[in-house]
Amino acid sequence: MNKEHLYKYILGIADNSLILGQRLGELCGHGPNLETDIAGTNISLDLFGQSRSYYQYAAKLIGNGATEDSIAMLRNEREYINVLLVEQPNTDFAYTMARQFLFDVYHLLMLQELQKSHDVTLAAIANKSIKEVSYHLRFSSDWVKRLGDGTEESHQKMQDAIDGLWTYTDELFHQTDADKAMVAEGAGVDVKELKDSYYSKVTKVLAEATLETPESKWFQKGGKNGVHTEHLGYLLSDLQYMQRTFPNMEW
């Protein structure tokens, strides 16, 4: 197996969890009530936990003194290859839940395939993560429904959030060269194959939530090639602050 491709492939998955975990972490202590605060922190914790497993694997793979932290915190912005969806800001609770939901549906589908990977480490991490992500999806779907079918105000806010984030959904199914190579090796997930199932699952929940599925066909892409929205730089300056300010220290 081409090591470079495998490394890139791992980062593609890990960066999604890291960046979304970081976004949710910003909200700790600021949720609409204690219960949702705890649940949000829980999801953030799961995502960081998953990203650590992936980065540890990636660090072992490239050696050369790399660690989970050096990979997670010391790359330049153009080297992060998470999808644009997960870096979008916590505009309000509707956006936070819509972002979570639109990612969770994809995440679960992807992990269900990844657990069949010929790469035993990836398969094992996927297997462990499925239980967690099933809960994330249940939680975010419930909130999409609650807000969509709650009050007039919450319905409008949820619809705005879905409309606003819709443009970032198509990128989930783009393939980089590393993705293609990993699919050919039987180690990676062919995300193109997940697309129909994704949109049908999303549409079903939106319908239940009395929300419209956006019809726009204008999509944004670039995250998987390291071309991000303006939001990521700010997120990274927090994430990397300590490692950049105090290089080569143990914490």
């Binding site: 970081q22 605060d37 932290d69 300590m242």
Partner: peptide, 21 residues
């Protein structure tokens, strides 16, 4: 939380604050 120096510390801090909640 957003600025913890390592992932291990970040996770531990999050878990601690969650305990407080």
């Amino acid at each position: 939380i957003t600025r913890a120096p390592s992932l291990r510390r970040k996770v531990a801090l999050l878990a601690k604050i969650q305990d407080e909640a």
